[in-house]
Design a binder for these strands. Structure first.
Length: 193
DNA sequence: TCCCCGATTAACT
DNA sequence: GTTAATCGGGGAG
């Protein structure tokens, strides 16, 4: 009789088939799960941004390339790329096949796997373990090897479970770190505990 | 082929 | 507030 929390299972792919700006806020409060068994890490999604193909800030703005191929895949796939030659960024592909849109996961709160994350994020306080896109990937162990995997499959190395209930308060604002299209209010985030 | 610069982070002053 | 780290993408030539 020791059920720590209900198992919500994997997120419904149809929820991800809408446009990125509609999907992004719905991912808040959901759970990003990486690893298996004793190596499992779970992060509650707290910060997201939307990118679309008609968006000058998006990798897909100028059409398909080798790097952004996964962003043109069908909804529910994971697009991972290397930024500044150092850090990884993880995105959830949305919309229809060929659209080239995705939601960037900017931050999560670690709710399971604290010991592993503490080891991986050595010297960093829990508050800063995963409060940025690169930090989040480092904490969950996500890198380019995971590019293209299916987040709607519980057998994948990384997958997503839906939020148990809609978040009470969602903040909205402009996206971080852009030199173009920085006025689109396509960032959504939750207060962190 | 060359070259600039990025959906960042951490460590500075 | 400023800046180095570090490398691949992709536009220009």
């Amino acid at each position: 009789v020791t059920v720590a929390r209900p198992d919500p299972g994997v997120i419904d792919r149809s929820l991800l088939a809408a446009d990125a700006p509609a999907v992004a806020p719905q991912l808040l409060g959901g759970f990003l799960v990486s690893g298996n068994g004793s190596e499992r890490i779970v992060g509650r999604i707290t910060d997201v941004e939307a990118y679309t193909a008609d968006d000058p800030a998006s990798h897909t703005f100028r059409g398909p390339t080798r790097r952004n191929a996964t962003m043109f895949a069908s909804a529910g796939h994971l697009y991972v790329y290397l930024i500044y030659g150092l850090h990884h960024c993880a995105n959830v592909v949305t919309g229809a096949l060929g659209d080239g849109q995705a939601v960037l996961i900017r931050g999560v709160e670690i709710v399971e796997g604290h010991e592993i994350v503490a080891r991986r994020r050595c010297g960093v306080g829990p508050r800063h373990w995963s409060d940025g896109p690169g930090k989040m990937c480092a904490a969950l162990g996500i890198d380019r090897r995971h590019d293209g995997i299916d987040l709607c499959d519980q057998a994948s190395a990384v997958w997503i479970a839906p939020a148990l209930e809609a978040p009470a308060l969602v903040h909205t604002g402009t996206r971080i770190g852009l030199s173009v299209a920085s006025d689109r209010p396509w960032r959504w985030w939750l207060d962190r505990s």
